[in-house]
Each structure stands twice: as structure tokens, then as C-alpha cells.
């Protein structure tokens, strides 16, 4: 059974006086421990889909089934409790945290809110989470703005896995990172996926990254699905015009293989 099943999802906005569909009749499924990538140019609706799936904004039409249950039917306390299973990592790790927060507080919040650990147990759990994402437990006392971008994104991942989710939405989660750090973060995500069987909805404009980590890809254009399928197959031989344009525009290192 799929972790997430989205069908006929639609979200309309008004641009000036005329309405336009930011997301238009989009359907897809994600299976446990699978990575589904959403690709497309800016304005194609990738981030809107992420926010719809997380119920940060409400759709105008369509259905979202999460872990087999109607996710759109939930509200209030029931919705907040369910959120433990569906987490998100943002693009800019600095903007994703309260500027006044410390690492410990950021990780303490989900443990407290979802009653995962008692107050006495939490420091130990926080240390374990930090170690799980490859950080020193001593980092807990530091302020978020004091640590490096790569460390911040690891803290964001630690926060996302604190509630043992079955799905994490990664919205351009590695786009702002240096390439060397990016590789390490992607390895960490794959490692977590293998061990915890977490599914990822991986949003990126970078086909190179998508090809490296995603099982399947959905290519969007102006809010609609242009094509979808096995990530490597689609990128090797795109059928849609937008897919071809994306592949053609990706910078290549043309060098003779050693």
C-alpha cells in the first residue's frame, strides 16, 4: 500500500483579476521507502504541491490519502497528532528555524509535542538524534545561527526524523548547500531511508541530483504533470517538451572518463 496517494489535486490562485491554476489535476503515489522526485521550472507548482501535501495550504479540489486514511478530513488536534508521521525539510536551513532557537530547543519541540519522551529523557534523545545525523551531541547547546549551513540542514533532518515519520517532504533541501556538503547530506538521507524505510517526496530543479537519489520522477509544467516514470529512464530519454528542455539546460562536465 502506498504511503501517500494524491489524486486530482488542484489549487487555484488569482493573478491580478484572472484566476490561474498553480496545481492542476495532479495525481501520484509514493510507496514506503521510495523517493519520488518532483522536477520542473520555477512556477511549475512543485513547492505548492509540497505545501498542499503538508496541509500548510488547502487544496481547491482533489484527495490526499496518507497512510491509507483521508488526510484532508483531519483537523485540529487530530491533524496535529498525524503530522508526526509526515515531516518536511526546507531549502534554506537558516530561515527554517526560529532565529532565537538553540539546537536543543529545535529538537526538543517535536519530542515534547508528540509525547515521545519525558522531560528527563529528552536530553538523551536529543543527543541520540544528533549522533544519528552525524553531528556531535555537544552541538545541542549552540544557537542555530552559530552553526554552519551543512550542520543546520543535518539538524533539520534530525528534527524531521524525531517523530519517526513515514514520509518526509524535501523542498529543494540540498539546493542551497555547497557541493561537498550536498553529497554528504544526500548520503545521510539515503542511509536513513534504508534503515527507517522513510519515503521521500524530493523536490528539486536539479536533474543531476534527482537522478542520483530518486527512484521515480514526475516532471511538472505550469501546474500539470508533463511526464512521469523511472527517474533514470525519463532523464535519459525525456518525451515531453519541458522534460527535453530541462535535460538540455542541465550543465554538463564533458570530460573523458578516467
Amino acid at each position: 500500500m502506498s504511503v501517500l496517494a494524491v489524486s486530482s489535486l488542484t489549487k487555484r490562485y488569482r493573478r491580478g483579476s484572472k484566476p490561474f491554476a498553480a496545481v492542476d489535476d495532479v495525481s501520484f503515489e509514493i510507496n514506503p521507502a521510495e523517493t519520488l522526485a518532483l522536477a520542473g521550472p520555477s512556477g511549475s507548482g512543485k513547492s505548492t504541491i509540497a505545501r498542499l501535501v503538508l496541509r500548510l495550504i488547502e487544496p481547491d479540489a482533489g484527495r490526499i490519502a496518507f497512510e491509507g486514511a483521508d488526510f484532508l478530513a483531519l483537523s485540529g488536534a487530530a491533524l496535529r497528532a498525524r503530522r508526526a508521521r509526515l515531516q518536511m525539510v526546507f531549502q534554506d536551513p537558516l530561515a527554517a528555524f526560529n532565529p532565537r532557537a538553540t539546537v536543543a530547543r529545535v529538537l526538543d519541540d517535536p519530542l515534547r509535542i508528540h509525547n515521545i519522551a519525558t522531560r528527563a529523557e529528552r536530553p538523551r534523545r536529543i543527543a541520540a538524534l544528533l549522533e544519528r545525523v552525524g553531528l556531535d551531541a555537544g552541538l545541542a547547546a549552540r544557537a542555530i545561527h552559530e552553526i554552519s549551513g551543512g550542520q543546520r540542514q543535518r539538524v533539520a533532518i534530525a528534527r524531521a526524523i524525531a517523530t519517526r515519520p513515514s514520509l518526509i517532504v524535501l523542498d529543494e533541501a540540498v539546493s542551497a548547500l555547497d557541493v561537498s556538503v550536498r553529497g554528504q547530506i544526500l548520503e545521510l538521507l539515503l542511509d536513513l531511508q534504508r534503515q527507517e524505510r522513510i519515503a521521500y517526496l524530493f523536490i528539486s530543479h536539479d536533474l543531476g541530483v534527482i537522478r542520483a537519489v530518486a527512484h521515480r520522477v514526475v516532471i511538472l509544467d505550469a501546474g500539470r504533470i508533463a511526464e512521469s516514470g523511472d527517474a533514470r529512464a525519463v532523464i535519459a530519454d525525456p518525451q515531453s517538451a519541458i522534460g527535453k528542455a530541462l535535460v538540455a539546460a542541465t550543465p554538463r562536465l564533458t570530460r573523458s572518463r578516467p
Binding site: L56, A84, Q87, D92, D109, P110
Partner: peptide
């Protein structure tokens, strides 16, 4: 984003 992040963790 951090307000959205707070909503996401419930």
C-alpha cells in the same frame, strides 16, 4: 518558513 516548520511538527 520557520512558522510553517512549527506547524509541520504539530
Amino acid at each position: 518558513d520557520y512558522v510553517a516548520g512549527a506547524r509541520v511538527i504539530g
